[in-house]
C-alpha cells in the first residue's frame, strides 16, 4: 500500500467520535469502515452501556453485554474508528468472539424490514460465503433463503417468491449478509442466465418442507 492510500484509509476511518442515532446509522458506519482495506478498529458506545469494540482485521469483537441487552433504538451511539498498523494487538483483552455474530444481529434488526441504504432496488444478490448458522440465531426460512442465494443471482422479489417469505423477511437477511460481507451484489437491470422456475416457489410437498414440519422447526 502506498502512503497516499494509507492516508486515505486513515482519513476515511475518521478521527474523533461520530455521534449517530439508532442501529441503522451505526450499521451504515460499520459497513463503511468494514470495507476499508487496512486494519481498522472500531468502538461503539451506547450511552449507559458497556462499549462494543471491533477488530476488523481479525474479524472479532468484544462486548461484555449480549446484543439483545442493548436498547432497540439507542438514542446516541458514539463511534470511533481508527486505522492501526498491520499486526497490531487486538483492541481488547483476550481473543474476542466472531464478528459475524454481531453483524448478523445488527443487520437483521437495524433497518427492520426496510433496505439498508447501501442496497439498491435494482440489485441482484448471490451468496459469496455461507454464514456459520450453528453460531447464529436462525430460522428455517433463513436457511432456505441462504440456499437460494447460493444457487443463483436473485432480486428481492425473486427471493421472496422462491422462499415464500415476506419482503421484510427477505430484506432483513440481505441487510445482514451484505453487512457481513457475505453477498456478491450486482447492480443494473441485466437478467442473469439462470432464473427461478415459475413454479419454484411454494414447495410444501418438497423434502425441506416436509422434514421441517416433521421436526417441528
Amino acid at each position: 500500500m502506498t502512503s497516499a492510500e494509507w492516508d486515505y484509509a486513515r482519513s476515511s476511518a475518521g478521527e474523533g467520535p461520530r455521534y449517530v442515532t439508532g442501529w441503522g446509522n451505526s450499521a451504515v458506519e460499520i459497513h463503511r469502515v468494514g470495507t476499508i482495506p487496512v486494519p481498522v478498529t472500531m468502538r461503539l458506545e451506547v450511552a449507559d452501556h458497556p462499549p462494543i469494540v471491533i477488530d476488523f482485521a481479525r474479524r472479532t469483537y468484544s462486548a461484555t453485554l449480549p446484543f439483545d441487552r442493548y436498547p432497540i433504538h439507542p438514542g446516541s451511539v458514539a463511534i470511533t474508528a481508527e486505522a492501526v498498523a498491520p499486526g497490531s494487538p487486538a483492541p481488547f483483552p483476550g481473543i474476542g468472539v466472531q464478528l459475524d455474530g454481531l453483524l448478523w444481529a445488527v443487520g437483521i434488526t437495524a433497518f427492520e424490514g426496510s433496505a439498508a441504504p447501501w442496497l439498491r432496488p435494482s440489485d441482484r444478490y448471490r451468496l459469496s460465503r455461507w454464514p456459520n448458522f450453528t453460531e447464529l440465531p436462525h430460522t428455517m426460512d433463513y436457511i432456505r433463503m441462504t440456499a437460494l442465494l447460493g444457487a443463483g443471482f436473485l432480486s428481492l422479489p425473486e427471493l421472496c417468491a422462491g422462499a415464500s417469505v415476506s419482503v421484510g423477511q427477505a430484506q432483513r437477511i440481505l441487510n445482514a449478509l451484505s453487512l457481513m460481507g457475505g453477498l456478491q451484489v450486482v447492480g443494473g437491470v441485466e437478467e442473469p442466465t439462470m432464473v427461478l422456475r415459475q413454479d419454484a416457489a411454494d414447495q410444501p410437498r418438497g423434502l425441506f418442507g416436509r422434514l421441517r414440519a416433521r421436526l417441528g422447526l
Binding site: W130, F133, M140, I143, R144, T146, A147, L148, G150, A151, G152, G162, E191, P192, T193, M194, V195, L196, R197, A200, Q203, G206, L207, F208, L211, R212, L215, L217
Partner: peptide, 16 residues
C-alpha cells in the same frame, strides 16, 4: 436442513 435446502434449491433454477 441446510443440506436438504441446498439440494432442493438447485433444482429450482432453470436456464433463462
Amino acid at each position: 436442513m441446510t443440506l436438504v435446502a441446498n439440494i432442493e434449491t438447485r433444482d429450482m433454477f432453470v436456464e433463462r
